[in-house]
Design a protein around this nucleic acid. Structure first.
Length: 611
RNA sequence: GCGCCCAUAGCUCAACCGGAUAGAGCAUCCGCCUUCUAAGCGGACGGUUGCAGGUUCGAGUCCUGCUGGGCGCGCCA
C-alpha cells in the first residue's frame, strides 16, 4: 500500500519506459496548479533535452501509455510539456479507506531500519537551561520521534555537560564561600575509603546548603575570575584534575552538583514533553580517554604541537591562509587540528566528544548519529568527526551535525530578557503558560473545565505555542522569537492546530452521543477531495522531514491538514447529513484527527480533549 | 586576515533532483454565527526573491563578482 504520489509515479515511470525513455523521469509531484490538476509530472522537459525531441510530443507519447488507468479521471498536457493528472473520486475514496484502516495513517516504514542515536538537549551541570537549550531540545525530540515512527531503533541522549574545568571553578567557589564545606572536603579528601555513612552524612549537609540557585549565582562569578586571575584559574584547573582523579570529597560534592541540577533539568524537560533514553554525561567517558589517547598514539595520529597533543584532520590539499600575530601570513592545514591533550595534560571539549563517539560505538554501535546542536559549532564537529573517521571510531559519513540557527529577540539579536540577561527556560515556560491561561479566559474557552483539566489544557496550549513557533521554521535559519506574536494564538500557530483537533473531537463526541455510525468514505465535495489529498501527502512530509532532518515539513503538513479540515468543517456538515454521507464524513473526520494527532506527536505536541 | 551561513510581501517565515501564475500567517480592508467550538471560514490588497553578470528551453534554487548582516577561527564547553 503506497500513497497516490508513489503509485502514480510508478505508473508514469512505466509509461516513460514504454516510450523508450528513462523511467526515473516519471516522478510525479503534487500539482503546483491545483486549479488544473491534483498531480503533475515534469519529466517530458528534461527528456526532450536528452532525446532532442519536442517535449509536448514526448508528453503525448507518454500519456498514450497511461490510457486505461482507472485511478485517473483526466490526463492533460499543458504548457511546454507538463503532464497534469486528475485523480478520480473513486480512487480518492479508496485511498482514504486505506488510510483510515491503517494504524500508521498511510505512512510507510523505512525499508531497512537502522540504529540511530540522537544527541540533543546538551544541558550542563550548575547552569539552569536558558532559551538556547530550547531549540536543541525540541528539534532533537522531534527528530527522535520522526525517526522512531519510521521504524528505526532510536536512542536519545541528553549528553550532560558535567565534567570540565567549570567543575573545578565551582568546587573552588563553593569552598571559598562556606568554611564548613571546605573543612568537610579536607576531611573527606584525606580518607582512603568512603563509607555509605560518610556519603549519607555529606549529602545531608550539602542538600541543606547548596541549591541550583547557589550554583547559578556562583558560576558566572567564578568563570569571570578565572579569566582575569591566573592564580584563581590555576587553582580551578588543579581542582578539576583532582576531581577527575576521584578525590573523595570533591567527587561527592560533584555528585551533589549533578543531582540538584538534574532535578531542575528534568522539571524543565518534562514541562516541554522532552525525554531522554540516556543521560550519559561527559564524566561517563572519562575512563575511556586515557586508553583512547594511547590508541591514537599507536595509530600514529597524535602529534606534539606547542606542548599540546593534536590530531591533524585536514587532507593533503586542504589548506587556508592564516595571519599570525606578527602580521605574516602562512599557509596552514584546514580544518584546524583536533586538540586532544592540552599542554597541561588535560582532556578538552573535543576529546570527550571523541571518546563519546567511541563509547557509543562500543555500546550501541549506531549506524547514524545526529547531533542537534547550534550551527555555530559546525567547525568543531567537522574536526571531531574527521578525527573519529581517521581513528576508525565511526563509519565515514555516519556522524552528522544537525545544526540550527539562533533564536533572536525582536531586535534581531540573540534573545534576552528586558533586563538584558539570558532568559531561563523555566521562566519562559511559566510566561507562556500564563499567557495561555489568559488567552483561554479571553476567548471564554475551557470555562466548563475543572481547575485541573483547565491547567492541563493551558499547559498543552503553551507547549504547542512554543514548539510550533519553533518547528514551523526550517531549523537552519535563525528566527525571531516574539512572545506577543506567538501568544496571539491566531493563524499559523500551535494553538490553532489544537483548536482544530478539539473541534473534531467535539463533533465525534456528539456523533457518538447520537449513536451515529461511521462508514466507508465516499469522496465527492471539493473540500473532501482536498482533505483526502492532504491525508495522502502525509508519507511524503514524513520522508522529507526524515531525509532532511527537518521537522518543519511535519509542521507544515499538520498545519495544511488542520486548515483543510477547517474548510471541510465549514463546507460539509457532518451530523446533519444523510446517513451514508454522515457515515463517510465521520470516518473522514476520525481519520483526520488520528493523522493530525500523529503529526503533532511527531512534533512533541499533545492536544487536549476539550478547550 | 581566513572560513562558514544568511538576504524572498510592511512584519515573521515557507517553497518537493532547476519547471507553469514564488506560497502561508500577521497587519490593513470587505463579507459570513437562529445549524457540528468564529482561536474559525470566504474574499481583497501586498513581490524586479539584496545588486550585477553567467549557465540553461527554463533560475528564489546552480556558478562568478559585489553590497549588507550573522557566526566561527586549539589549551572554556
Amino acid at each position: 500500500m503506497s500513497d497516490l504520489k508513489r503509485g502514480l509515479s510508478e505508473a508514469v515511470a512505466a509509461a516513460f519506459a514504454a516510450a523508450g525513455l528513462p523511467a526515473e523521469l516519471g516522478r510525479v509531484t503534487p500539482s503546483d496548479r491545483p486549479d488544473l490538476a491534483d498531480f503533475q509530472c515534469n519529466g517530458a522537459l528534461p527528456a526532450s533535452k536528452a532525446a532532442k525531441r519536442n517535449p509536448r510530443e514526448i508528453a503525448e507519447e507518454v500519456v498514450s501509455h497511461l490510457a486505461g488507468d482507472s485511478r485517473l479521471a483526466s490526463v492533460e498536457i499543458a504548457g511546454p510539456g507538463f503532464i497534469n493528472l486528475r485523480v478520480s473520486d473513486a480512487a480518492l475514496s479508496e485511498r482514504a479507506g486505506e488510510i483510515a484502516a491503517d494504524p500508521r495513517l498511510g505512512a510507510q516504514p523505512v525499508d531497512e531500519p537502522r540504529r540511530v542515536l540522537i544527541d540533543y538537549g546538551g544541558p550542563n551541570v550548575a547552569k539552569p537551561m536558558h532559551v538556547g537549550h530550547l531549540r536543541s531540545s525540541i528539534i532533537g525530540e522531534s527528530l527522535k520521534r520522526i525517526y522512531r515512527f519510521r521504524g528505526d531503533t532510536v536512542v536519545g541522549d541528553a549528553h550532560f555537560g558535567d565534567w570540565g574545568y567549570q567543575m573545578g571553578l565551582l568546587i573552588g567557589a563553593v569552598m571559598d564561600e562556606d568554611a564548613e564545606i571546605r573543612a568537610m572536603m579536607e576531611d573527606l579528601n584525606a580518607k582512603s575509603d568512603i563509607t555509605p555513612q560518610d556519603e549519607a552524612a555529606t549529602f545531608a549537609v550539602l542538600d541543606g546548603k547548596i541549591t541550583l540557585a547557589d550554583l547559578d549565582r556562583l558560576y558566572p562569578l567564578a568563570a569571570a575570575r578565572g579569566k582575569t586571575e591566573p592564580d584563581y584559574r590555576d587553582r580551578a584547573r588543579k581542582l578539576t584534575a583532582e576531581l577527575q582523579g576521584r578525590k573523595p570529597g570533591y567527587f561527592l560534592l560533584w555528585r551533589h552538583f549533578a543531582k540538584v541540577t538534574k532535578v531542575a533539568l528534568e522539571r524543565d524537560f518534562h514541562a516541554l514533553g522532552v525525554d531522554f533514553d540516556l543521560w550519559k554525561g561527559e564524566s561517563d567517558v572519562d575512563e575511556l580517554i586515557e586508553p583512547m589517547v594511547a590508541d591514537l598514539e599507536a595509530k600514529g595520529l597524535l602529534v606534539d604541537d606547542q606542548g599540546a597533543r593534536i590530531v591533524h584532520v585536514a587532507g593533503p590539499n586542504e589548506t587556508k591562509k592564516k595571519k599570525l600575530p606578527d602580521g605574516t601570513v602562512v599557509v596552514v592545514p584546514s580544518p584546524d587540528p583536533l586538540l586532544v591533550v592540552s599542554s597541561e595534560g588535560s582532556a578538552m571539549y573535543g576529546t570527550t566528544d571523541l571518546a563519546t563517539i567511541l563509547d557509543r560505538k562500543n555500546t550501541f554501535d549506531p549506524h547514524h548519529v545526529l547531533y542537534a546542536v547550534d550551527q555555530r559549532q559546525a567547525d568543531h564537529f567537522e574536526i571531531v568527526f574527521r578525527a573519529a573517521y581517521l581513528a576508525g571510531y565511526a563509519e565515514r559519513g555516519s556522524l552528522e551535525h544537525v545544526g540550527f540557527g539562533t533564536m533572536n529577540g525582536t531586535d534581531g539579536k540573540p534573545f534576552k530578557t528586558r533586563e538584558g540577561g539570558v532568559l531561563k527556560l523555566n521562566d519562559m515556560i511559566v510566561m507562556t503558560r500564563d499567557k495561555a491561561r489568559e488567552r483561554l479566559h479571553e476567548a471564554d474557552l475551557g470555562s466548563e473545565l475543572d481547575p485541573d483539566a483547565f491547567e492541563d489544557t493551558a499547559n498543552k496550549v503553551a507547549v504547542a505555542a512554543l514548539k510550533f513557533a519553533d518547528l514551523q521554521n526550517f531549523r537552519g535559519t535563525s528566527y525571531v522569537f516574539d512572545l506577543d506574536r506567538f501568544s496571539s494564538f491566531e493563524g499559523k500557530t500551535g494553538p490553532y492546530l489544537l483548536y482544530q483537533a478539539v473541534r473534531v473531537k467535539s463533533v465525534l463526541r456528539k456523533a457518538a452521543e447520537a449513536g451515529a455510525q461511521a462508514g466507508p468514505i465516499i469522496v465527492s465535495e471539493p473540500a473532501e477531495r482536498d482533505l483526502v489529498l492532504l491525508l495522502d501527502a502525509f508519507d511524503q512530509a514524513l520522508i522529507d522531514a526524515y531525509d532532511k532532518k527537518a521537522p518543519n515539513f511535519i509542521a507544515e503538513h499538520a498545519y495544511k491538514l488542520a486548515q483543510a479540515f477547517s474548510k471541510f468543517y465549514a463546507a460539509c456538515p457532518i451530523l446533519s447529513a444523510e446517513p451514508a454521507v454522515k457515515a463517510s464524513r465521520l470516518t473522514l473526520a476520525q481519520t483526520t484527527l488520528r493523522q493530525l494527532e500523529q503529526a503533532l506527536d511527531l512534533l512533541g505536541i499533545a492536544a487536549p480533549e476539550r478547550m
